[in-house]
Design a protein around this nucleic acid. Structure first.
Lengths: 126, 126
DNA sequence: TTACTGTATTACGTGTCATAATACAGTAAA
DNA sequence: TTTACTGTATTATGACACGTAATACAGTAA
């Protein structure tokens, strides 16, 4: 099974790091809709962490609609679901405000920030 | 004493919310360098939280260089310190990547995201 | 039947968060 | 000097999240 890349670091919960790496792999196109998604026990063995910790991340992935489970078989990557307006608003208000705040604190200019944004954007498939 | 606006919500540690609100007040220009910064006990009484929780946020503000303490007198807003290159890189790589990832998940377009970024940017003083 | 899947449950240890109650040093004003 | 503010430090306690551990059960495939 193709295991997406994860390198665990201190400072954030393990299950969140697994969740983030899986999101990144799916949304960047590394894993495509219909592709098999690694099993709980496989990921756990590879990262040498507890299967329960992996399952916590998997539950979140299914809630987000990025992964679906075929009972008795395993998981696979889903077609991306329709986003919800409320989540869009939360990103555009809260998360962006926090980002701008930090950028201001670091004395970045708007052009610098925009350039960095576009650079990150281009790292994903369309 | 002028108390900056804070409305506590569930989901995030209280001291982080106090820290964020203080950062926002200072970086947005609501509180200017040289202005007195509210005392630990004053903020604690206003928000009806424990003074120790406020002090935790204050310690972080001093570490960031946004606030300084005059012993026996109180706190005041500092001149913003020089940003560190490492922190800039962390924002431009890690934080921006996470933002772009979420925006992609919500199927935002790059122009939409850029427009929202500029809108948030304009909410602060230059 | 055997060996994989996901899922659920209970228990334990650890650390963070928040509160609480004090205590101490520095400064200003009555 | 006394009083009343500042920030700071310490210790204790309770609630909760996180991670691990050990099982158990149902569904599917070879």
């Amino acid at each position: 099974m193709n295991l997406f890349a994860i390198d665990l670091k201190a400072g954030a919960p393990i299950y969140e790091q697994v969740l983030y790496a899986a999101r990144k792999a799916i949304l960047s196109g590394e894993l495509k809709p219909g592709d098999p998604f690694p099993s709980v026990r496989e990921i756990a063995a590879h990262l040498r962490i507890n299967p329960n910790t992996v399952q916590k991340a998997l539950t979140a992935l299914k809630t987000e609609g990025l992964v679906e489970t075929v009972p008795g078989i395993g998981n696979r990557v889903r077609e991306s679901p329709e986003p919800r307006a409320a989540e869009r608003a939360a990103l555009l208000n809260g998360d962006l405000e926090a980002l701008v705040l930090r950028a201001r604190q670091l004395r970045l200019t708007l052009p610098e920030l925009e350039a960095a944004l576009r650079a990150q954007w281009s790292r994903f498939q369309d």
